Amino acid sequence: MDLLKWSKRPAAGVDAKKPEVNVLRGLIARATTPLLPDDYLHLINPLWSARELRGRVVEVRRETENSATVVIRTGWGFPETYRPGQYVGIGLQVEGRWHWRSYSLTSFGDTHDDTISVTVKANPDGFLSTHLVDGVAPGTVIRLAAPKGDFHLPEPPPDSILFLTAGSGITPVMAMLRSLRSHDTVLDIVHVHSAPTRDDVIFLDELEGMDADLLSYDLQLQLTSVDGKFDIDQLDVVVPDWRDRHCWSCGPVAMLDAIEERYREAGLRDQLHVERFAIARTDVGGEGGTVTFAKSGKTAEIDGATTILEAGEDQGIVMPFGCRMGICQTCVVPLAGGYVRDLRSGEEHREGERIQTCISAVSGECTFDL
């Protein structure tokens, strides 16, 4: 057993589809120390890495004027299966810096052909989303984080479902719909989706095709430029039996807040499943300050709206992250010194506490052992 551990250790940290492969990689690593197999294999194929998950962009397919589907061939160690509705972390090197964000998978859970897809809407304030939609070229090698998230259908799924989506909130639900259709799963589904115009509806042709072909799928488009924004008070009229359905909802913060409140008032909060792409930040004042990353020897002056996670990534530091919304706890690290402020509640945290870097900003000054 000790010999086995000794041989595997240099290649540990990434789950292999065949665990015995790690033993072989570990033995090669011992034989080539101080170099690891990656130092040679990346010259043959950049996707052969035991140190990190990687992928290569295969295709960028335009969906609307400001959104595109990015098809990625996954490298060694990427999970063979995942749940439709989960998200994946993507790291892209731009101008010498690695930028990380999480995006919902629009492929539906089977990587038998070693490809996955994400559909990204370019945000005017989103550096990476804009680059993925307009600037990433096929053949680009990217870093990946394994799929995560609790926003997915159970097994077996409920007989009747309500999807409430808006804008790019369609993306995780699209993975669910594609999975259900591929497995010929017949469910009673009502789908209310909002977008400014028909030209802004991501996957419009596919959604309308399912609406025409499947008696069990009812698509109701809310074109906000004509019909106005979806009002939760319309629910009794639009979906009279909504109380009998389990609901999956994804979209803007205000819309999700209203839906959560309605389900809570009806005593049905356990029937509602929500995916948020942004955190609701408070208006509690904060002037920012100085953040120090002690192990990296880097310091940054940031404003009160920039998160510790964003500040670290801007400095080129590899920061732990997951959902980037304060839900999954992947980014939690100890605060070595100073103070930070929770952007959602305004609550201040001090030295010795463990904080979520994705929803915390500096309050005066703070230090992390990163």
Rank of each mutant, 00 (worst) to 15 (best):
L177A: 11
L214C: 15
P196V: 14
T197C: 01
T197F: 00
A212T: 12
D218P: 00
D213P: 05
L187G: 03
L187N: 13
L164P: 02
L187F: 06
G209K: 08
H191A: 00
D199Y: 01
A166R: 02
R181C: 07
P172K: 11
H191G: 12
D188W: 05
Q220K: 11
A195T: 05
Q220W: 02
M176W: 02
S168K: 08
E208F: 00
L221I: 14
D188N: 10
I161M: 14
A212E: 09
F203D: 09
L164Y: 01
L215N: 11
D200T: 13
G169N: 09
D205I: 04
A212Q: 09
E208S: 05
V190W: 02
M176E: 06
G169Q: 02
A175H: 09
G209H: 01
D218Y: 01
S182V: 05
I202W: 08
G169V: 05
V173H: 00
H193S: 11
L215I: 09
E208V: 10
I202K: 05
L187Q: 07
L219M: 08
L219V: 14
I189C: 07
L204N: 09
Y217I: 12
H191S: 08
V192M: 07
A175K: 04
L214Q: 13
V186E: 10
L214A: 12
D218V: 15
L177Q: 06
R178F: 05
A166C: 05
V192A: 00
V190Y: 06
H191I: 10
D188H: 02
I161Y: 12
R181I: 08
A166T: 11
G209E: 03
S179T: 12
M176T: 00
H183W: 07
T197G: 00
L180D: 03
Y217W: 15
Y217A: 14
L214Y: 07
D205A: 01
D188E: 09
H191E: 07
R198G: 04
Y217C: 14
H183M: 08
R181W: 02
T171M: 11
L177I: 15
L180G: 02
G169Y: 06
V192K: 05
S216I: 12
I170P: 03
R178E: 11
P196E: 05
